[in-house]
Amino acid sequence: MSASRPSGPARTMLSGMWAMPVLLAVCTAIALGVGLLYDGLWDVLASLLLGLPALSFLERVLRRRR
């Protein structure tokens, strides 16, 4: 297991310390907003977006355990 940063600008951006947390916070904000403002399919979108932080946590934990 290596903790070194991957090379390549795209991977660096996504694996950087802040990029993912900011992305997840934006998803959370959109999820909370659209869920509150609209009904129907927007609620499904809100649930999916709000699920991303939990999925990201799970992915990181499972990935490092492998």
Binding site: M1, A3, G16, M17, E59, R60, R64
Partner: peptide
């Protein structure tokens, strides 16, 4: 700051 996002040092 020295780690990738989401690193868990198992």
């Amino acid at each position: 700051r020295r780690l990738d996002y989401g690193t868990v040092r198992w």
